[in-house]
């Protein structure tokens, strides 16, 4: 795949380079999380531990909001796991590129949406021996930036957001820019182009309608359905013409 540059650096350096754009998206959101958690009554230490151990943005916001509002604890658990259920499909998709090392399942703690998107593009381009180094480097930088951002938000979030409001407005654009670069090479045929466009538009519309947590799985299902519909249509046309 020619989606990204040829890998010239060591896998650790390459992983770090690839993960750098994530910081623009992670740190402002982590600062917001730290600030909101402390304002909701959690201590700075508890807030940092939530980020380090759960490490899943949307569900962490839900977790503190539900606990703070006194929701039943079983419901908090169910909702957290439901939001994170989309992660079920990430591991199987990168499994063909992973060795049989027993460490890989442990390393899946770092498999966030963004690390999955990066790994799905980068792992096939790397030699098998380099993949674990690349993954650990990229995932560790993302994880640490999330933890450090949370700590900064918990301790000084209010001051930072009031002093540099523009920073929090501009830096999160790094995430859509990164996803765009990862997606660009996949527009390879009419079938794939339509599938991608429908997934993107559906997700955007669902998000604007306020369905933030279900937007990703629902939009992806729309895309997959369209993919199979187009495939059936192409097959039927092939049978008529053939």
């Amino acid at each position: 795949m020619s989606s990204v540059e040829t890998v010239k650096n060591s896998p650790w350096q390459q992983g770090a380079r690839d993960a750098l754009p994530l910081l623009g998206g992670y740190i402002p959101v982590a600062i917001s999380f730290g600030l909101i958690a402390v304002q909701s009554g959690f201590s700075a230490l508890e807030t940092v531990l939530i980020s380090a151990l759960i490490y899943a943005g949307a569900s962490q916001f839900l977790f503190i909001a539900m606990v703070a509002s006194g929701a039943p604890l079983w419901l908090v658990l169910v909702m957290t796991l439901l939001i994170n259920a989309r992660h079920l499909v990430y591991g199987p998709n990168i499994a063909p590129y992973l060795s049989n090392s027993r460490w890989w399942p442990v390393l899946m703690h770092g498999l966030t949406d963004q690390i999955f998107a990066l790994a799905h593009t980068r792992l096939p381009q790397l030699e098998e021996k380099d993949r674990m180094g690349w993954y650990i480097s990229a995932a560790l930088i993302a994880w640490l930036s999330w933890i450090v951002g949370t700590a900064v938000g918990a301790v000084a979030g209010a001051e930072i957001t009031s002093r540099w409001p523009l920073l929090g407005e501009v830096m999160p654009f790094a995430l859509p820019a990164l996803f765009l670069v990862l997606l660009a090479p996949r527009f390879t045929s009419v079938q794939w182009t339509l599938t991608m466009l429908v997934s993107i538009v559906a997700a955007l519309v669902l998000k604007l309608m306020g369905m933030t947590n279900s937007a990703i799985p629902l939009a992806a299902l729309c895309g997959v359905s369209l993919f199979y519909l187009l495939q059936a249509k192409l097959k039927a046309e092939g049978e008529i013409h053939g």
Partner: peptide, 29 residues
């Protein structure tokens, strides 16, 4: 090993990334 992957799973991965892109496009304000 790609042949052993269920097809729906290989279609679902890029559409999930496309959906993440769609969600991230929505501005905070």
């Amino acid at each position: 090993t790609n042949e052993a992957m269920p097809v729906w799973l290989t279609v679902l991965a890029p559409t999930m990334i496309a959906a993440m892109f769609g969600v991230s496009l929505a501005p905070a304000h």
